[in-house]
């Protein structure tokens, strides 16, 4: 597995190209990329705060859990912190497996846990001011299907 929590911009295409290289035994790679969404042009910036140390440990534990549930040949999680602009990639997950079912399921599992159990907090700056993004009940409820 590879986990990178970084302050700088990253290129999801380059990450996928690298992740896909030299993959004998892998028949499927699933990727998810999250972008900074701007609903209606009001968003100026998104600030992502994290908990150095715990973030890496929590994400590592999630990936280990995914590797226990599904037979993966590899997994990658990249997640930004710091100040992001609308349209920039926030994070990506890539899962590699022999067949697609495990790769899809593990990617969904990782996304659900990253949303609600990885110590990141988002703060939006819009033309109306700044506010912390509230956790959504749907994101918390999404974890139920994995228990």
């Amino acid at each position: 597995m590879e986990i990178r929590i970084l302050p700088d911009a990253f290129d999801p295409g380059a990450e996928l190209a690298r992740f896909s290289t030299d993959r004998s035994g892998t028949g499927a790679i699933v990727t998810f990329t999250g972008l900074v969404r701007d609903d209606g042009g009001a968003l100026h910036a998104l600030e992502i705060e994290h908990y150095p140390g715990m973030t890496e440990a929590a994400v590592t534990a999630m990936v280990a859990e995914a590797e226990g549930r599904w037979t993966l040949t590899d997994a990658l999680v990249v997640h930004r912190h710091g100040t992001l602009r609308p349209g920039e990639p926030i994070m990506m997950v890539a899962t590699a497996a022999r067949h697609r079912a495990a790769a899809f399921a593990a990617a969904e599992f990782l996304m659900d846990y990253l949303k609600s159990r990885a110590p990141f907090w988002k703060k939006e700056t819009t033309r109306d001011g700044t506010s912390w993004v509230a956790a959504r009940d749907e994101d918390e409820a999404a974890l139920d299907r994995w228990t």
């Binding site: 999250g34 929590a58 990253l114 949303k115 956790a135």
Partner: peptide
């Protein structure tokens, strides 16, 4: 979180080095 592990308010603090308080997380 107690020593970087999510836990509850009833968690004991014996031997603990670090306690963190924060709102529900909004990653992804």
């Amino acid at each position: 979180a107690v020593d970087q592990q999510l836990t509850g308010f009833d968690a004991p603090l014996t031997g603990v080095r670090e306690v963190a308080f924060f709102p529900p997380m909004t990653g992804g």
